[in-house]
Design a protein around this nucleic acid. Structure first.
Lengths: 144, 144
DNA sequence: TTTAAATAGGACAAATTTATCCGATAATAA
DNA sequence: TTATTATCGGATAAATTTGTCCTATTTAAA
């Protein structure tokens, strides 16, 4: 469904958000340990998220990553997915055809449109706050 | 969503099915040309489909691929997907967690379960006959 | 001011997926 | 029986994704 990079991005964002709710900044190492991901690879992904204003980073000692508290409930899962994987998953033809649309559809067009729309609707309406609170209260997990 | 190999497999199966409905056997070259896919790569994929009894092949002149006519409406899209990509798309956690289930869910578990179930339901209930007839009557296309 | 702890980012490596090449094998038809 | 036309399948290559390494840069604290 999502690329591995995107999975890491989502998990990292949820963890950073949960910590930010407590005004805690977290280091790259923490994040990688918490979501069970390769450190250096995770660093690249976090950089993308920072460049796209999903989160903020601070260099130097006491540095790390955090998400502006007031924005946590305005960031939707869709923004993270879009930043890392683009919008292919929401728009791409199920059979990979370049020219597939309602007028000249591929054989699975109609049925897959429904699923893609539902996916778009779902990830477009889950906020980072919702995801992070579930983690915070121990209702969900994120590691392995 | 699906791997490229799986996309080729689906398109090839639809084309072969449509031709088989007219009792026409088709060659590898025909298939690759018709679905705009690399010939040799397509050959590998077709071999997998043959080994899994999705279609049949005949060597030698007048040889090629076909699907037993009486079985075309019993083969569901799910079987093709399963043969090439396995069942990961139906079962895998949205965040790639090994131990994600209703008791100890990942943050997106519930919402993604719905989508995966719907996907499973859809591909489990589209028959090759349905897909091939759409192509046959020119309602759908499969190339580019 | 120096040191240490943190992210930034370029270059490179491994793994996986996608794609190609070529000889072997099978089967039809002349 | 031979030539031709197919698929089969192993080896290899290219492309993409995933992952690593190392140095530079920034910044807080001693």
């Amino acid at each position: 469904m999502f690329s591995k990079a995107c999975e890491y991005a989502i998990k990292a964002s949820i963890y950073v958000a949960a910590q930010s709710l407590e005004d805690k900044r977290v280091t790259l190492k923490d994040i990688a340990a918490e979501i069970d991901s390769p450190v250096a690879f995770t660093a690249k992904i976090l950089q993308q998220l920072v460049r796209n204003d999903i989160m903020q980073s601070t260099m130097g000692p006491t540095g790390g990553f955090q998400i502006e508290k007031s924005l946590i409930d305005t960031i939707q899962l869709a923004e993270i997915v879009h930043t890392i994987d683009g919008d292919g998953i929401f728009t791409r033809c199920g059979l990979g055809l370049k020219k597939c649309n309602a007028k000249k559809p591929c054989p699975v067009h109609d049925k897959f449109s429904v699923i893609r729309d539902e996916l778009r609707e779902v990830v477009g309406n889950i906020s980072l706050f919702e995801l992070a609170s579930g983690l915070y209260v121990g209702l969900t997990h994120i590691k392995r």
